[in-house]
């Protein structure tokens, strides 16, 4: 099939403002990944087209972008999931809410700053088990935060959030997901400190339960649910299925 890629281009070294550029590719297979098409454009037609990518199968989180109006990973969207027919048109633009560095590449620093602000790391200063072995955790307690351990920090959720578009100071869904992963880990001891951060005006209360994050997540994390659970933790504390 034939595919026309309509790509939002911008190189601040030479462009005054962003513009749309069209590239047509022939002999595209319906099960080609959008990332492969981007590579074909870059390799065969215009080497100046810039985008991030690495693993190419939806695990590293490099290639988040807006594809046909929705945030996706370019390596996790097949052409046939977008459209069918002899001539398919695909529109690609950078994620919104982060400053565009070049073409589809955005400045991830503010995103990681929010990530770092929620103490996204395990805290437990209690003495280690005396037998020198692992801390114990029941399967049910482990399952409680399983969903949010899947996050790959691709920023698809945060940059799909109208609250984040309006206000970049909002920590955003991804950071809250990270906080959730530790708040609900029965081994962790710093839930109260994280909740303190998230209680601030730019914390969880900016979530308006819009659900764009949940549908944008390429790892199918139940993001809005996780945010609601963090809000619940603020109201009534954290309870684990099994006492430990």
């Amino acid at each position: 099939m034939r595919v026309t890629m309509r790509i939002r281009r911008f190189n601040p070294e030479k462009d005054q403002k962003p513009y749309w550029a069209d590239y047509t590719l022939d002999q595209v297979e319906p099960n080609d990944r959008v990332l492969e098409l981007l590579h074909r454009v870059k390799w065969e037609q215009d080497g100046t087209l810039s985008f991030r990518r690495s693993c190419a199968h939806g695990v590293c989180g490099s290639d988040g972008m807006r594809i046909n109006g929705v945030n996706r990973l370019a390596c996790k969207v097949l052409v046939n999931a977008l459209d069918s027919g002899d001539h398919v048109k695909i529109q690609i633009e950078p994620m919104l809410g982060l400053h565009v560095i070049k073409d589809l590449i955005v400045d991830m620093e503010p995103f990681f700053e929010h990530y770092r602000s929620v103490m996204p790391y395990f805290v437990n200063d209690d003495p280690l088990p005396e037998d020198g072995r692992e801390r114990l955790q029941s399967p049910a307690n482990r399952a409680q935060f399983d969903d949010t351990t899947k996050c790959i920090l691709c920023a698809c959720c945060t940059t799909s959030c109208p609250s984040f578009w309006a206000n970049g100071d909002y920590v955003g869904p991804a950071a809250i997901v990270q906080a959730h992963r530790f708040i609900y880990d029965s081994r962790d001891n710093a839930a109260a400190e994280r909740l303190k951060v998230l209680r601030e005006p730019d914390g969880v209360w900016r979530c308006r339960t819009i659900f764009n994050c949940t549908s944008a997540c390429p790892r199918e994390i139940e993001v809005t649910r996780a945010i609601a659970e963090v809000k619940a933790a603020m109201r009534r504390g954290v309870k684990h299925p099994d006492p430990e």
Partner: peptide, 16 residues
Amino acid sequence: LEHLGLPFDRTSEGRI
């Protein structure tokens, strides 16, 4: 790694 917080799957006894 477990002490650093790595969420291993658990056996019914709570071990890795």
